[in-house]
């Protein structure tokens, strides 16, 4: 019985339907135009209104400050990057582990959930001084703040993904005489990956601000320390330059996660090029 088999449609898998031109337009041109426009308005505002640099430095001044203070940033940025990486890595490891425990056992979920929500509502800037007393005047308390701020979104997103498996899917795996662990490993875990990455992308911004907040309270090094320093000196140029560097680090981490995501879950709907899209 082969009649009509060829009439069944097979949707194309290939990407790059719109080609390089489409990619350049969507991924490069549009954001570039938007950013250029914003910076032009900013530059013109500063020039036309003749604003003092301490009030609002122009974007050209802020960007050139990044390069003029290159040595300063080379000293301070790696410290902050290290804190972000430390806090974020802790978040991923402990966040996924917490999500697992919550999904594995209903009792654990009831115990852990309220603690998580409580942790999330703490204003961390107010406990940062305490963390310095606990962990010492070094990078440890900064890693802790970075971790605390980025932990919650990873737990919530990952647990949601582990729970979002159809009953039929669970029954299907169970019908193969699967153990509870196999059901988890073969269905709940892979199903949670897209959710995990969504949470991880949100968390990377929190991990970055967490490290900066940690440095606010007491530090000798780091970009947060530079922000405090430039504020006290009313050195707005340095302040803006530091913000640019912090943003660049945050964006860099974001794209790194996005890239890892694409590698890990190429099957996900977000990475399929479909007909009629991207035009």
């Amino acid at each position: 019985m082969n009649v009509g088999r060829q009439t069944e449609t097979v949707r194309p898998a290939g990407r790059a339907r719109a080609g390089w031109g489409g990619f350049l337009t969507a991924e490069i041109l549009y954001p570039a135009v938007a950013v250029t426009l914003l910076l032009t308005v900013w530059q013109l505002t500063v020039v036309v209104l003749d604003l003092r640099p301490t009030f609002l430095p122009s974007p050209t001044a802020a960007f050139s400050k990044v390069f003029r203070s290159y040595d300063t940033f080379v000293t301070h940025a790696p410290v902050t990057i290290f804190e972000i990486v430390g806090g974020y890595a802790l978040s991923i490891v402990l966040g996924v582990a917490t999500a697992f425990v919550m999904v594995w056992s209903r009792v654990m979920e009831k115990i852990v959930s309220p603690i998580l929500v409580f942790l999330q509502t703490i204003p961390y800037i107010s406990v940062a001084p305490l963390l310095i007393i606990w962990f010492g005047f070094n990078i440890a308390p900064k890693i802790v703040v970075s971790f605390l701020m980025s932990y919650f979104p990873i737990v919530v997103a990952t647990a949601a993904g582990m729970n979002a498996v159809e009953n039929d899917m669970i029954d299907m795996v169970r019908s193969m005489s699967a153990s509870k662990w196999q059901v988890f490993w073969k269905s709940r875990f892979p199903n949670s990956l897209p959710y995990f990455f969504s949470g991880a992308k949100i968390a990377v911004a929190f991990a970055t601000s967490g490290a900066i907040v940690g440095e606010y309270v007491g530090a000798d090094y780091g970009l947060g320390y530079l922000i405090v320093l430039s504020n006290s000196d009313t050195n707005s140029e340095l302040l803006f330059a530091t913000i640019i560097v912090v943003s660049a680090i945050g964006v860099g981490f974001f794209w790194l996660i996005h890239w890892v995501e694409k590698l890990c879950i190429p099957w996900h709907v977000a990475f399929r090029e479909e007909e009629g899209r991207a035009r």
Partner: peptide, 23 residues
Amino acid sequence: FQSPVLMNWRTVLENVMLQAEVR
């Protein structure tokens, strides 16, 4: 089952092989 309940992170062959893996 009523719906195919295929795992969208597995290829067709990998979906079929799930049975052999789990067993």
